[in-house]
């Protein structure tokens, strides 16, 4: 039996001197979809940022291994090139840099790291357009500056477009579902389903159960008190819906 795709053990993360995650452990196997739920301020986004290697999210104890390799000490771009994708809760605007240009640069950087040749421009364009139309992303948004003047929903769909084109091994989606109307949510959910291939894994960080009704997760975790307070199957979602986070907060405390 090979190692899990993502193996987090006893992870402690401090942000601006404050301990946000304390001894969190989580295993995600190939092909699995995990949901991480929890109240505001529980540290869900901190986990996502720490996984992606953001400065200022200091890991003071524990380990994070990705496909058997130690993530600590890898730069954000090394992690990305290994196949770790973070869907941002607040996708960043980069004025003047065309959306397609960033996507192609990113794809080529990742191919280069994998020892593959650069993608042919026409092939890239075809693929990006195809994925964009599947995600119902307006074609003119491809030419605009990265997320520049996009609506909240458009930004989230653009994250999904990058996910679809970059085809990572693990996608951590940080509240990709929040702020979306029901139509947009369905598009995002079907995007995730389409990318499930038995190998690619997903970690959906969310506040709401509605996306989980559309993408049935294999495992559900409740993050509270700096660690995983409870893990279970999809049925945990219903329980949460009924009881709220209160009980878990008490358990954690």
């Amino acid at each position: 039996m090979s190692a899990p795709l993502l193996d987090i053990r006893e992870l402690t993360v401090r942000v601006e001197g404050k301990e946000i995650l304390s001894g969190l452990s989580l295993e995600v196997g190939r092909g699995e979809v995990h949901a991480i739920m929890g109240p505001n301020g529980a540290g869900k986004s901190t986990l996502a940022q720490a996984l992606a290697g953001r400065d200022g999210y200091g890991v003071s104890a524990g380990s994070m291994r990705f496909d058997g390799e130690d993530l600590l000490g890898m730069s954000p771009e090394e992690r990305a090139c290994k196949g770790l994708f973070l869907g941002f809760q607040y996708p960043v605007e980069i004025p003047g840099v065309s959306n397609m240009y960033l996507l192609r640069s990113a794809l080529n950087a990742q191919r280069k790291a994998a020892g593959q040749p650069e993608i042919n421009a026409a092939e890239f364009l075809r693929r990006a357009r195809q994925e964009a139309s599947r995600l119902k992303l307006k074609p003119e948004l491809l030419k605009r500056g990265v997320n520049e003047g996009f609506s909240g929903g458009e930004k989230k769909r653009n994250e999904m477009l990058q996910l679809a084109v970059l085809k990572p091994r693990l996608a951590v989606l940080d509240e990709t579902d929040s702020g979306l109307d029901i139509d947009a949510l369905k598009v995002v959910a079907s995007g995730i389903r389409a990318l499930r291939d038995g190998q690619r894994a997903f970690v959906l960080i969310t506040h709401y159960e509605r996306i989980l009704n559309l993408v049935s997760p294999d495992k559900v975790h409740v993050l509270a008190g700096g660690g995983i307070a409870r893990s279970g199957g999809a049925e945990l979602v219903q329980e949460l819906e009924a009881a709220g986070y209160e009980t878990f907060l008490r358990e954690a405390a």
């Binding site: 992606a52 953001r54 400065d55 771009e77 992690r79 090139c81 973070l86 960043v92 950087a109």
Partner: peptide, 15 residues
Amino acid sequence: SEDQLFYCRQRGLGE
């Protein structure tokens, strides 16, 4: 912007 830098690096670009 740190946010822009991190976003690009998360997508695989070197600093």
